[in-house]
Amino acid sequence: MNMIDVQNVSFAYSEEKLTLNDVSFSIKKGEWIAILGHNGSGKSTLAKTLVGLLEPQSGEIHINSTRLTEETAFDLRKKVGIVFQNPDNQFVGVTVRDDIAFGMENLCVPREEMLSRIDFYAKKVGVEEYLDKQPSNLSGGQKQRVAIAGILAMRSDILIFDEATSMLDPYTRNDLIHYIKTLNKEGFTVIMITHDVNEAILADKIMIMKHGEIVAFDQTETILKDKSVFLENHLELPVALEIANLVEDEEIRRILWEYVSET
């Protein structure tokens, strides 16, 4: 079953340029999609149309078989959680605890349940020590984790991360990615917008965008084998694969490939 169906969607901020140009694709329930692309390629705009924050000038978006319109957007947003690149853009609470609660309050989650979810997700992202702090006193990476906890606590079927881990140190990021992996296995649909190829290769499928169009959308392994699509789009291959491409020895290449797909 398709969780997300996007048909011929175009969007423009100004008359001069289409930021999304006739984009069509679908995502199945439980899939993990990574979206890669140059700055300005339309990735974030696409994410915003999926949650109804931007209304495309043409085309249709269906979430779980319901067409996304002004009327349905309010209900459909319960199905789609989005974490933005800059966590400062989504803080509303006075304390971290209030902030994580905000999304759940809107979903009318019962109080007891809400409190236990706050503790659970705060621990999951490692911010349990900061629950009584003001979000503005946290570091960039801590803020990102709070924003992520708030979205996870809503338990939306679809989770969209718009470069939401860009400020995390490698260890914190790995922990978080592994947790998202677990959620994905439980059936959550994950869309991850990222510049980090090492993060993207964990996905089932990779989508590459350029000038508002989808230039490639395929199984991760297939995409990685075609070096040219990466080079043409100014994308980086994982370092281990770059090394693999520069040596002839078959066994070395095989081990480096395995290493990349394991991590």
Binding site: D169, Y171, V239, A240, I243, I255, L256
Partner: peptide
């Protein structure tokens, strides 16, 4: 809790496996 550069990590992996 810092990470090593990716080149170092990949080469360490080769040393270990081979």
């Amino acid at each position: 809790h810092l990470d090593l550069p990716n080149t170092v990590k990949a080469l360490k992996q080769l040393n270990e496996k081979l």
